[in-house]
Amino acid sequence: MDDRDHDGERRTPLDLDGFTIEAEVSNARVQAEVLWVDGLLERALGVIEDDRRAVEVALQRLRFGDGATGTKAPGQRRWGLVASAAGLLVAVGLGLLILVGPGASSAQAALTRALERAERSEARAFAAVLRRAGSGEVVRRAELFTGGADAFAIKVAAPFGGYLWAGADQDGAWFVPALEALPMIETDQRSRLLERLEEHGASLPYVDVLTLLRACSEDFELSLDRSERCLSGVRRSSAPPGPDRFELQLDSQGELFTARLERDVDSSAGAWVFELERLDVAFDPALVERASHHAPGRRVLRR
C-alpha cells in the first residue's frame, strides 16, 4: 500500500477508532491535530483516568527515601531505591492504582538507558563467544568493535583459519571473507551480514550491540535486581523464536558491560549460549570504517 499522500509526505497508520483513519493523516500537522482533539475528547467525556491523579500515582512511585533514608539528589541517588519505594507503596495499598510492576518499569527504563548509552558511546571493544550444543560443542570467538552511533566491526575466527570481518556504518554494511581471493561484499542491508557469516561457516546470532539490546527489549519479561546493574529477561511464551533468556550486566553509568543470551532448543542447530564482555582495550577508531578493510586491488561486489 502506498503510504505517501499526493504531496509526497509520509503517511503513517493511525488507529484511533478501531480502523485506520487514512483520510485524516494527509500530513503531519493534520495528524497531530487529530491526535490533540482525540486526547481532549477522551478527557472531556471521562473515558480516561484523570491526568492529575495519574501523575500523582507516578510521582508516588518516585517517592523513595523519605524519612530515615533521606533523599539523594539526582546523580547521587541509587536507582535501587526506586524499586524499593515502589514495593513499599504496593504494600501500603496503592497497588490497585499502579498499572505496571515497578520491577518491569525500572528494568525497561534501564534497558532504554543502556540502548541510549550504546547509541552515544565512544569506541568500545567486546569479546564475543558463541557456544553451540549439538553433536559436539562448537565454540566460536569474535571481537566486536563499536565506534559510536551505529557503526561497528566484528572480527570472527573463520572455521578454516584466518578471520572474517563484517561491519556497518551509516553508508551501509560490508563483509570481508577470510580468503583474500574472494571479493569484499557491500550491501545496504545489515541483516545480510548474518547470512554472509553463515555462508562462510561462521554464523552468529548477533554481530552488533545495538541489535542485541533491541532484541532484548522485545518479547521478554524484564526484571532488574536491587543493585540495578543486573537486568534479566525471560522470553514470553507467546513470543516468536529467539533467545529464551538473557542477562545483562550494566556498569555504573548504565552502559552494557556483559551480556549472556541463551537458547534452549533450536531445531536446526541445537541450544546455544552467546556471551559478550566489554574489554578495556584501546583500538584505532578507523577499524570500524570499511575503508580500513578494503585492501588495494581486492574486488568489491554489491549485493
Partner: peptide, 9 residues
C-alpha cells in the same frame, strides 16, 4: 502509564 512512569524516572 508505563511510558509516563519511565519518562519521570
Amino acid at each position: 502509564e508505563e511510558l509516563l512512569q519511565e519518562t519521570l524516572l
